[in-house]
Nucleic acid binder design. Structure first.
Lengths: 225, 225
DNA sequence: CTTCTATAACTAGAATTTTCATGATCCGGT
DNA sequence: ACCGGATCATGAAAATTCTAGTTATAGAAG
């Protein structure tokens, strides 16, 4: 995954890019309006993190520029301005999300992941995996055409699994993506077992095959086999 | 309340001090090791926010200095280092809490409030309000000497009320202190009604007087009358 | 190969928190 | 005083999280 970070504060720039690189994402950086504009013209990104408070130009201008290129990278605005108006203005201009500084890095990551996922499924009405069918707009899930009612956490969990199909996901990764960082590190996350159990039960009860596989000591893998 | 912010990044310095001043707290700032050291020698604070990444000296040294003065201000470490070791080292050296950058301002405030509250009740075995008696160490609550079992949220709510005795607290203030910022702004917070209700019910059922008073359109006030 | 052991995963049910629907209360403007 | 919208209270239902007890797994030891 390739990310562009448009941000003039060096320390924050550092934190963000090193954090994403741990994940295996490629992360480029631009400190000025000019530099950002050039990079956007030259390369393609999966997601652009845009700080509004640039030294040499209005960040919203840059947003317009990005959007006028009609490209499909997601844009997440990072800003110190926490008025509701700023936020709405940003979203109106086509940003995908808005995060006020300061924030947790894990929250940033979760939101980027959400944007990328959304883009990936963009225009797509539904995701289908074997006999499981997810209507994204209504957040309804069907198995063999019959509706299955999931709670929000179960739904989120299923989406997370399906968008990481085939990959092994750790319990911690699940926790961070579904709960952010409100919980202390080295925490238990045992309650995830409950959600996994309930999701499995509801899916198999509706006639789907076993698709959530436990990898002992590591985590889970979603898929066939 | 008087707070010292030891932090070299100007924008963050700004954000923090203006945020606390909205609350009516006095907030002083030091950008360097030297400056901080001087101010600590001269004045008394309720809480010191200490950034470890200072330009002219190790923050942990400063922490030692503060602790060697055997004064009782709380110290909250702010740091970009998010390794568990750094955290533990800081706490071992006597810091009261540790927050990794970046973070939400409201989370910072909540933690500062927690530290100040803890200090205020430091050494104190219990808080007594009328016939309500709170054993801080065991987190047990007694009314007329008889134990009342409260859930964690109810307990937190009670502590929050009691430490703001007589003052009017808004629903939003309660929400921010008990939940941090995981929830969107302009959110409902309706569930607070449930916790208020349960707390009231348990207290009065145990024979305490009505001490949580609703102030229509504003919030609640804890106390007699 | 079997047994042992420590850790990880699972499960059911309890406890807690949050949501939801409904009714009561307050307060400003007629 | 009456109305109407907003605020608050309440009980019950739903969702989430926690707890304790059980089972499974991999690796070590016999």
């Amino acid at each position: 995954m390739k990310i562009l970070v448009i941000e003039d504060e060096k320390p924050l720039q550092e934190s963000i890019s090193s954090y994403f690189q741990e994940d295996g994402s490629r992360c480029e950086v631009a400190s000025t309006f000019r530099e950002a504009s050039e990079k956007i013209g030259l390369y393609q990104y999966d997601c652009i993190l845009l700080d509004l408070g640039l030294p040499d130009g209005d960040g919203l201008k840059l947003l317009q520029e990005i959007k006028s290129l009609k490209r499909k990278e997601g844009v997440l605005i990072i800003s110190a301005r926490h008025s509701l108006d700023d936020k709405l203005e940003g979203l109106d201009m086509g940003a995908d999300d808005y995060l006020v500084k300061p924030f947790h890095l894990s929250e940033l990551r979760a939101r980027v992941a959400a944007i990328v996922r959304r883009k990936k499924f963009d225009g797509q009405q539904q995701i289908i995996f074997q006999e499981i069918q997810i209507e994204l707009s209504s957040m309804r899930v069907l198995v063999h055409g019959m509706p299955v009612v999931l709670t929000k956490k179960e739904y989120d969990l299923l989406i997370y699994f399906i968008s990481n199909q085939g990959k092994v996901v750790t319990k911690n990764a699940i926790a961070e993506h579904l709960w952010g960082d409100d919980m202390d590190l080295a925490d238990d996350y045992d309650f995830i077992y409950s959600h996994i159990k309930n999701l499995r039960r509801k899916l198999t009860a509706a006639g789907a095959i076993e698709c959530i596989h436990s990898i002992y000591g590591i985590g889970y893998k979603f898929g066939i086999l």
